[in-house]
């Protein structure tokens, strides 16, 4: 474990750990805005909807190139399917009587069911490479190649820079979308940007955390950060740190004990940081009515 933490548990493990850490850093701030816009469960629908996309992309890439396990192509399929999942949730809400959470539940379970079916079919095929596909469920960084790590690093970097650049705009539409629209900001396009950040995080998160647990990497560091601060900029920074630390230690644990899936160890690390924060953080206690006394008029 100590070897792993010091990045000396082998070249592959080190590459995987750095990839996972960068993802954790990006997921923190993206999760902060997701949480404040009350879209936490939308990420869960998106992530579960990626599985059929991964399977389809695998088959398509096998047919086109003769090799199925090309990470960029698989992630492209995942991204397309996740976007379709989010659009389905929004369409269900707009054109049916289903509530927000019910729409999410329908899309989440239907998408995942479809994906599991596709996965079972692919695994019966007499071809090589399909064995790795189920790693997308709970995450496994052990087989990560350097080119994959570059891809994740690139996406994570773009995510962090985008959040930083649009920080003021994202803060505005998260707090008061009506005021933002009245002041002339294109709220729908900014909303689309925020959803795009969410989808990108989910998709690159498939590689290290896996689709079942990626929502935890968006929520837990953000919630933990909220316990410590009342300032949005500090909350985003803290969530990035917490996400990075969780991913780093989680990936190290997974590298040290090969039978542990990376997604589970990373999310557990984030959960431990949350649990440690609860008794000590200043904002853990339930909210009471504001204790401000007005002078009598």
């Amino acid at each position: 474990m100590l070897d792993a933490l010091l990045l000396s548990a082998g070249y592959n493990a080190a590459v995987a750990m750095i990839g996972a850490t960068l993802l954790g850093i990006a997921a923190g701030p993206v999760g902060v805005f997701m949480l404040l816009r009350r879209r936490a469960l939308l990420a869960d629908a998106a992530s579960h909807a990626t599985l059929p996309g991964v399977v389809l992309a695998f088959l398509a890439s096998l047919w086109l190139t003769g090799e199925g396990r090309s990470l960029p192509i698989l992630l492209l399929g995942a991204g397309g399917a996740a976007a379709l999942g989010v659009l389905s949730v929004q369409a269900l809400q707009a054109h049916s009587r289903l509530s927000n959470s019910t729409s999410i539940a329908v899309v989440l379970s239907a998408g995942f069911g479809l994906g599991v079916m596709g996965l079972s079919y692919v695994q019966t095929l007499p071809i090589a490479g399909q064995a790795g596909l189920d790693q997308f469920l709970v995450g496994q960084t052990a087989g990560m190649r350097l080119s994959d790590a570059y891809l994740i690093a690139g996406v994570a970097g773009v995510l962090v820079l985008t959040v930083a650049a649009f920080f003021k705009e994202l803060r505005l539409i998260s707090f008061d979308p009506d005021f933002a629209a009245a002041a002339g900001w294109p709220v729908q396009r900014l909303d689309l940007l925020a959803n795009g950040l969410l989808l990108a995080t989910v998709v690159v998160g498939l590689t290290s955390v896996g689709l079942i647990l990626i929502v935890a990497m968006l929520i837990i560091p953000a919630v933990t950060a909220r316990l410590w601060t009342q300032k949005l900029d500090r909350m985003a920074l803290l969530a990035a740190i917490l996400g990075g630390v969780s991913a780093y230690t989680g990936a190290a644990a997974s590298a040290a004990f090969h039978h542990l899936p990376t997604g589970a160890t990373i999310v557990l690390a984030a959960g431990v940081l949350f649990a440690l924060s609860l008794p000590f953080a200043p904002l853990s206690r339930p909210r009471r009515a504001p204790q401000v006394l007005e002078p009598p008029a």
Binding site: F175, D176, G184, R226, Q230, K231, R287
Partner: peptide, 29 residues
Amino acid sequence: PQRASVDWDFPASALDVVAMGFYRKLGWL
């Protein structure tokens, strides 16, 4: 807007909220 239309548990100070009135003047990014 109506006071009840926003979440007052949002992590922001009074100054942060008032600054939003200047965002348009500041411009993108």
